[in-house]
Amino acid sequence: MPINRAALIACLSLLAACSPQAADSTGDVAADVVTPAAAAVTSAAAVTPAADEADTAATLAGTLEEDQQARAAAGCSVPDDVAFLQDIRIYCDMPADVQAFIARENSCEHIAGEEPYDDARSRELEAATARFCDDREKIFANLVARHRDDCAIRQALIGVNLRYDLSPDLDLKPCEG
């Protein structure tokens, strides 16, 4: 079973935030503040030995400033549901069906990191999982087939596939030439 990198990053950032060291910190809080995104990048880089995986983690979670800069430079209004930096960067250059998938996938990744702390929340998360996560591999494969002749979209979809471990058997290759 492939590891979902975004879910791993979310879990690692939660662990970093809930660590005894973080809870017992009595020093200068302002000087020691680490954003969850920075903690996720740091934690992910520490546990992923391959440089390309660390690079992937770095593009998933940016700082608030990087996020705001990417949204300002995007060229269109990027929905708040699109939270991963690399997705923000490519969003406006994609056709509507790919944009919708990116927003859906970001929502799915967000839900994957949520805790079902009671029965009501568990039902809420189950409904959201059905809405945002069900059939994601099938939808992605259809997007790949629909946009197979557009090299720019194909390259973006290769990145999406790598970020979210959607279809490792799809054998997506960049355009030649």
Rank of each mutant, 00 (worst) to 15 (best):
P49Y: 15
R148V: 07
R163T: 14
Q86L: 06
E126F: 04
Y164Q: 01
T35H: 11
A127S: 09
S122E: 13
A83L: 07
A50L: 10
A100Y: 05
D118H: 08
A17V: 04
N142P: 00
S13Y: 08
L8A: 00
T56V: 05
L64D: 14
R136D: 05
E109S: 15
P116F: 07
R146G: 01
D80C: 03
F132G: 04
I88A: 06
D169M: 10
L8Y: 02
T42M: 10
D165F: 11
P36M: 09
H110L: 08
F140V: 03
A31W: 08
I153W: 00
D52M: 07
E176K: 15
K173N: 15
S19F: 12
A128C: 00
D149P: 02
R121F: 04
A112C: 03
F132T: 04
E109G: 04
A70P: 07
D149S: 14
D134R: 04
L172C: 02
V41L: 06
V29M: 12
A72M: 06
L157G: 04
R146N: 07
D169S: 15
A103L: 06
N4C: 09
F84P: 00
E66M: 10
D150G: 03
A30L: 14
P49W: 15
S122P: 01
I111E: 11
T42E: 14
G159W: 02
Q86A: 13
P79L: 03
K138L: 04
R104E: 07
L143R: 01
I111P: 01
A37E: 01
A128V: 00
P2N: 09
V78E: 03
A74G: 09
A58V: 04
A128L: 11
S19P: 10
T42G: 09
L172M: 15
A70N: 10
D97G: 07
C92V: 08
P174R: 15
V29Y: 14
L172Q: 05
K138P: 00
P49M: 11
R146I: 01
D24R: 14
I102H: 05
L166A: 08
Q69R: 13
R89I: 04
L125I: 01
C92L: 05
M94Y: 06
D134F: 00
A70S: 12
V82R: 03
D134L: 02
